[in-house]
């Protein structure tokens, strides 16, 4: 169960997208998400889908993985689709509502499909970022993007550092949890039986050791960082400099071209 969580989901292969500056990717993904909301008919959706799958192909990450990422969201997808399907007014399919004034309208059907597509494309597109950018590069990019605001008192470096530490420790804590669960099960503990109250109580033998170990790790990490003279962000250089290269420029140009096509489609058709 715990293993299904794919948070630090970076997929290490060589591709053009992997080599882009994380800043470029972050900004382009934000622009991409905005562009999703420009699409509203068959043609624009086609352009959008073509672009999305083109980028997915470029990332060299197995398409299977992208669709696996959708799995945890099918409930939300189903829920929004159902709401749109039944609660949109318009002309009913078959001429009239089939039960107590509830029915499916043509408008509702289209809206449901549109919203589901939007959500799916949104998730697929943003997974491109997380699959092709290592968590470290991601936080580096965020730090750099936020650094102009540092003058206004925004602790950009600290935020980025906190994020990268948090991301770094997710798999560790999952592993730790599995270990503790097993150790308590070996002493006859039972985590998946009984009513809600019993189950909540059963969590104590898991949560207490987990918290203790998290604090111990935090302590150890703080000491280790101090021992290596970590003093916060000022004056700190990095081993891997992120640089805006020609390729980033091309990526931006491609994206602008895509935007152009999308907007033309919207205006002309």
């Amino acid at each position: 169960m715990l293993k299904d969580i794919t948070l630090g989901q970076y997929f290490p292969v060589e591709s053009l997208l992997h080599r882009l500056d994380p800043r470029t990717k972050i900004i382009l993904v934000i622009c991409y998400i905005v562009s999703i909301f420009l699409a509203n008919d068959v043609y624009t959706y086609l352009v959008l889908a073509a672009f999305t799958f083109g980028v997915i192909a470029l990332s060299k990450v197995p398409v299977k993985l992208y669709f696996r990422g959708l799995k945890p969201l099918w409930l939300i997808l189903l829920f929004t689709a159902a709401i749109n399907l039944f609660l949109t007014s318009g002309t009913y399919i078959g001429g009239r509502p089939f039960l107590w004034g509830i029915g499916i309208t043509w408008e509702g059907l289209f809206l449901a499909i549109k919203m589901a597509l939007r959500l799916i494309l949104l998730i697929l597109g943003s997974s491109v970022l997380t699959y092709t950018t290592s968590p470290i590069a991601l936080t580096d990019g965020i730090e750099k993007l936020l650094s102009p605001f540092a003058r206004m008192g925004l602790p950009a470096h600290e935020l980025a550092m906190m994020m990268s530490i948090a991301i770094r420790f997710i798999p560790t804590l999952i592993e730790e949890t599995e270990k503790i669960v097993k150790a308590q099960e070996a002493r006859g503990a039972c985590f998946d039986h009984g009513n809600v109250v019993r189950r909540a109580k059963a969590l104590v033998p898991m949560l207490v050791p987990l918290f203790i170990s998290a604090f111990r790790r935090a302590d150890d990490l703080a000491v280790a960082m101090e021992a290596r003279c970590y003093r916060g962000g000022t004056g700190r250089t990095r081993m891997k400099q992120i640089r805006f290269s020609a390729m980033d420029l091309y990526a931006c140009l491609v994206f602008v071209a895509y935007l152009g096509v999308l907007i033309t489609c919207k205006v002309v058709v």
């Binding site: 097993k182 308590q184 099960e185 002493r187 039972c190 050791p209 170990s213």
Partner: peptide
């Protein structure tokens, strides 16, 4: 449950499971 009663397993660093 019965199996785990019969076969006692002490993990590596078992002190980390105290609560």
């Amino acid at each position: 449950q019965e199996l785990r009663r019969q076969v006692g397993l002490v993990f590596q660093y078992p002190e980390h499971q105290l609560f």
